[in-house]
Design a protein around this nucleic acid. Structure first.
Length: 470
RNA sequence: GGUGGGGUGGCCGAGUGGCUUAGGCAAGGGCCUGCAAAGCCCUGUACGCGGGUUCGAUUCCCGCUCCCACCUCCA
């Protein structure tokens, strides 16, 4: 069996066949960097990171392009409000986004192009659309895409132009409310440095066109997978298709959309202001790996209704896995694996990336490993440990490097100090002075160090929320 | 009004025409332990409502209802 993906365009699960054997081109609509990222953006990043890792596991060479839209109405409005250059806003938020992605283990894309770095490509594409009678310029220096010129408009999102609410604003020279701007003329209310010269007058790109231009530049006229959040299927992706197809390009062969992350029954979004971000979760004692688990454990197309309780449960589930890995490594050392995941894991991942089932297999293996650990069956422990690490690796999680102790950078220091305390406790236990022994354990617990007795002697771990303080 | 997705045991969350009715969290019982912790074992018998198809439906079909997303900037 090979990978099957749900394709939004055909509303069906399809066998994934790369257009060029052994290679995959993916374009993911990144973020408009108008404000700091929230975990809804992270979900998107994590979902496609898993897709990419799985494609690579399957031996494909992945060219993964994730764009940054660094100029749009909101970025400019923010710049005016803060009285700073628009590009400083965009850059600041871009850095925050990349840091957040990095924290949750989303690998860097092959390239991360910015809209403003592709003005020539954008203008070339616009001119091409004008030449083909799919776009028109107005007296006011705007260029609009002529929706009526593209028969398949609405196919991706199931919208019919005649059924649509007239949400699009009208403007002088605009032929239809549905037409959308490819190029926007100078506005006196916007920063003067937000414009470039063009055949249609000074202006800047509209939303949508930058993605068509950048896919063209980095992936060619036709490529394999286009991804993004379900919420931008319309109008953004619909418009991208219209532009690129009208320009004569084959464009994306598969459309993958991740589900939204809601909060309180509503989509978490910048415009609604109901956002939760990584720093606020860190303040609650959650580690990025736990957040990644939370975001990747449900299926990528399902809705996640954010709740602290669900997040805490996910963190507990991840710690269970982590606990096994740590104990197993202490017992048998780090194992070398061949990098091949169990067949059952391949099966469920090939099935439209069924990560819930994939994690179920991880947990089943953990249980087997724990049993082996209790039975002293080191060979079985090695087996389970290797499988767990390999599966987690494909899912972008590495419990070996991302432990609380390792992150503090003081593991060795704590180890020495705890060893000292444990000597006293063992002495007390030897003379059956249980109150004294328990006092040591309680004091360590107060300090955030948990003691467990095992058949091979006591071991310590940092409490989950050790960084949280009392 | 249009389009699409969904309502699964206390909670999160997969899945399936019956067969072995995921997995995690929480709960109760047990084992282990000086006591714990961790771990292991056991227990709970779920599929929004009403019809229909079927030998049999949570799974297919129809109706209803509720929720969410999109149709306007948003991963």
């Amino acid at each position: 069996m090979s990978l099957q993906l749900y394709d939004t365009a055909t509303r069906s699960v399809r066998d994934f066949v790369p257009r060029e054997a052994g290679k995959v081109g993916i374009y993911l609509c990144g973020v408009t960097v108008q404000s700091p990222p929230h975990i809804g953006h992270l979900r998107s990043g994590v979902n496609y990171d898993v897709l990419r890792r799985w494609l690579e596991y399957r031996g494909l060479e992945v060219r993964f392009i994730r764009n940054i839209t660094d100029i749009d109405d909101k970025v400019l409005a923010r710049a005016v409000a803060e009285a700073v250059p628009y590009w400083s806003i965009a850059y600041r938020n871009e850095r925050l986004l990349d840091d957040a992605y990095d924290a949750v283990g989303v690998r860097l894309p092959t390239y991360e192009p910015r809209a403003t770095g592709h003005i020539p490509e954008i203008q070339a594409l616009i001119q091409r659309l004008i030449d083909r009678d799919h776009a028109y310029a107005t007296d006011t220096g705007e260029v609009y895409f002529d929706v009526s010129s593209y028969a398949d408009y609405g196919a991706l999102s199931g919208q019919r132009p005649d059924e649509m609410r007239s949400g699009e604003e009208t403007a002088p020279g605009k032929r239809s409310p549905l037409d959308f701007a490819l190029w926007k003329g100078v506005k006196p209310t916007e920063p003067a440095d937000a414009y470039w010269p063009s055949p249609w007058g000074r202006g800047r790109p509209g939303w949508h066109i930058e993605c068509s231009a950048m896919t063209w530049r980095y992936l060619g006229e036709e490529f394999d997978i286009h991804g993004g959040g379900l919420d931008i299927r319309f109008p953004h992706h619909e418009n991208e298709i219209a532009q690129s197809r009208a320009a004569g390009f084959g464009f994306a062969r598969y459309w993958v959309h991740n589900g939204p992350l809601n909060l309180g029954g509503e989509k978490m979004s910048k415009s609604l202001g109901n956002v939760v971000d990584l720093p606020s979760l860190a303040a609650r004692g959650l580690r990025p790996a736990e957040v990644r688990y939370y975001l990747s454990a449900p299926h990528y197309r399902s809705v996640i209704d954010y709740s602290e309780a669900a997040l805490d449960e996910a963190a507990a589930a991840y710690r269970r896995i982590e606990g096994f890995v740590q104990r197993a490594v202490e017992r048998v050392g780090v194992v070398e694996t061949d990098g091949v995941v169990p067949a059952g894991f391949e099966l469920v991942m090939d099935d439209d990336l069924n990560t819930p089932q994939a994690f179920a297999l991880v947990h089943e293996t953990v249980r087997a490993g724990n049993t082996a650990l209790a039975a002293g069956d080191d060979e079985a422990v090695r087996q389970a440990l290797g499988e767990v690490l390999t599966m987690l690796g494909v899912l972008g999680l590495d419990p070996l490097t991302d432990t609380p102790a390792a992150r503090s950078g003081l593991a060795d220091t704590v180890d020495s100090l705890v060893a000292l305390a444990l000597q006293q406790r063992e002495a007390a236990r030897a003379r059956r002075d249980w109150p004294a022994a328990d006092a040591v354990r309680d004091q360590l617990k107060q300090a955030g160090v948990l003691i467990e007795d095992t058949p091979h002697g006591p071991r310590w771990t940092l409490a989950a929320n050790a960084t949280d303080g009392p």
